[in-house]
Design a protein around this nucleic acid. Structure first.
Lengths: 352, 352
DNA sequence: CGTCCAGTTGATACTCTTCAAGCGGCGTGG
DNA sequence: CCACGCCGCTTGAAGAGTATCAACTGGACG
């Protein structure tokens, strides 16, 4: 049951709204002034906050201001209650990050619809994304939510691509953002001597191609299909609009990118000083984490030796020799070319 | 002179507004309906667009929708013109990414103030940031702009730190975002064997420490002062609020992070396969780009050999030997430990 | 049955790290 | 003022680790 906090100095109005909400199966918390409202927000962590703009003492802006400075509450949907005449206040409210508003006297339909929309929207954003990428459901949910505010243009084209197909390569102008419905892909760079290094891998549920679009520059890396794939194609304009339009989504993206940076930084450290053994171990773990394949309860990776070497950043032969070592140490097992991980933990924390 | 586009089906109103704006030294472009408005937006690229909500044919929402899908116009400030009664429309408008609105009949003071605020705000965001970081002026400008919408809490504490001081290290909880007023710093990771790798460097005008805050996780890297520094300290709550509150700033940040990712990816490729020579060259270039020091018209770097080796990701001795090679090839010159770059271009594009 | 290719193994060459020692400047304490 | 030790930088020599080249294997495929 969702918790809703109502902050207003008008006790009658609170009762009125509380009644409607209770009937609609929401749990209602009440606060008679701004200070109390903040205390209850932090303590009860409601799913949504409704707050009157004009109150004696700390007013609605003050409450929003304080709450937007607390990590626990800054992303809680915040709805202003305002009188008809309060049009100028509204600008301040929206600019400060309120999500929506309601005018007094409160219309029952509007009340419920606003609450429903805001809760659903926040719900879809709260679901934890996979470490480095947004999930399919989330994206669709967001798209759906946006329909509610009159955005029906996200296309849902799904295209199929064959193994080895080069989706795009360095220097091309980005036109789409891609979402992986099924299949596997690699993203790689090539150096002057033609050596390839795999900087990222994608499988179902992943989302890629956005950095070039966000920067508005040609692709700096190439994408190739590793296993037959179905990709959902999102035009750049739709994507820009999506990211641009909602602070929650922008924040989600910022989060995503920060994560990505950390991931790359770790790889840098790994490449800089680690022994081949450690690099190979890190490479295997990397593939496992990205593709998440399992067989008979054990993590498995199916990847060409060449590609694995390019993930590791080493010569194929050297990498293979290390695999052999790992096999001898019972860390992995190789059957028909597939690499089964026997001791994931030890592999993650190699001592030398 | 700033260009302002007014879209409205009411010719009298346009004339009225145009007159006020012309007197205030703005260049005014007029459009009598939505379609014409879009055409003129794309062709003339105005600095600000004012648009009536209700128009026959394509209405204000339609115009905003279309323009927010074009890279040329999606970041142009968009101000809605709406009747007093259009309170509900307003929600849609703000949700779709309008920046502000004005109510008819238009009050002269309000008109000019809204336009002034929006233009100034956009101006501060448009100024190109240094490749990887926001500039000081921009940040201050943004802070100033925010004062206008009632955010006066960005503190401006400036602290001084001595060389070698460890600002924070891995595992600590982030509390502040930092802005470099003067001095130089390094951000580094340490591997199991205690070897240090420098992942980034900061000097005046740079902005750092935000990724940990955006992710809401402990620091993954440490920061140490290389040259006595003055840092401006921004509490995490203020920072979150700043990023959260305005779509333009969020986008700016997203841009920043995307850039950072690309930078790291390039480093990865470099570390993976390149010879020591190339790695050292890339390291030198990296320091040059970050610190931008010059003496007698030549780029110079003053950095301990140890640190430079840690930027390169190689043993100090190996790095030094390569420096000697470069000296022999007249690519660099070393005076009193300072490295002068003689042939930057050649260094950037080493053949072997 | 021959060809092709991915994967593997062997031998060798070479780059880079490591260990060790020397040099010069600087501050400190006698 | 000099001797001493410390530190940052540099040079030398040796050794480890990894890449490279080449050859071999086994399975897939026509």
């Amino acid at each position: 049951m969702k918790k809703i906090l109502i902050i207003d100095d008008d006790a009658d109005l609170i009762e009125n709204i509380a009644e409607i909400l209770t009937l609609s199966e929401y749990q209602v918390i009440k606060a008679g002034n701004g200070k109390e409202g903040i205390e209850k927000s932090l303590k009860e962590k409601p799913d949504l906050i409704m707050c009157d703009v004009s109150m004696p003492g700390l007013d609605g802006f003050g409450v929003l201001h304080v709450l937007s400075r607390h990590p626990e509450t800054f992303s809680t949907p915040f709805v202003f209650l305002t009188g008809r005449q309060g049009l100028t206040d509204l600008r301040r409210g929206m600019a400060m990050g309120a999500d929506d508003y309601l005018t007094k006297p409160v219309n029952e339909d509007e009340l419920l619809s606003v609450i429903d929309v805001r809760l659903r929207k926040n719900e879809s954003l709260k679901r934890q994304a996979s470490p480095a990428h947004l999930g399919f459901n989330e994206l669709l949910q967001q798209v759906k939510d946006y329909d509610l505010i009159n955005l029906t243009h996200i296309s849902r084209d799904i295209h199929s691509y064959k193994k080895k197909h080069l989706l795009y390569s360095v220097g091309e102008k980005p036109v789409y953002v891609y979402f992986v419905v099924s299949g596997k892909l690699k993203e790689f760079l090539v150096n002057d001597e033609g050596k390839e290094f795999i900087i990222d891998m994608y499988s179902n549920g992943d989302f890629f191609g956005y950095t070039a679009i966000l920067e508005d520059k040609p692709y700096k890396a190439s994408i190739q299909i590793l296993e037959d794939a179905e990709l959902m194609i999102i035009p750049r304009t739709d994507f820009m609009q999506l990211v641009n339009q909602d602070r929650h989504i922008s924040m989600k993206f910022i989060n995503l990118l920060s994560n990505n940076i950390r991931e790359k930084e770790e790889k840098l450290l790994n490449l800089a000083y680690n022994s081949l053994r450690k690099k190979v171990a890190a490479g295997i773990i990397n593939v496992i984490d990205k593709f998440k394949d399992e067989k008979q309860g054990r993590p498995v990776i199916q990847i060409s030796r060449e590609d694995l070497a390019n993930v590791v950043g080493a010569a194929q032969e050297s990498m293979i020799r290390t695999l052999k070592e790992f096999k001898g140490e019972k860390l992995i097992e190789i059957v028909d070319g597939s690499i089964y991980i026997l001791n994931e933990n030890k592999l993650r924390h190699l001592v030398y």
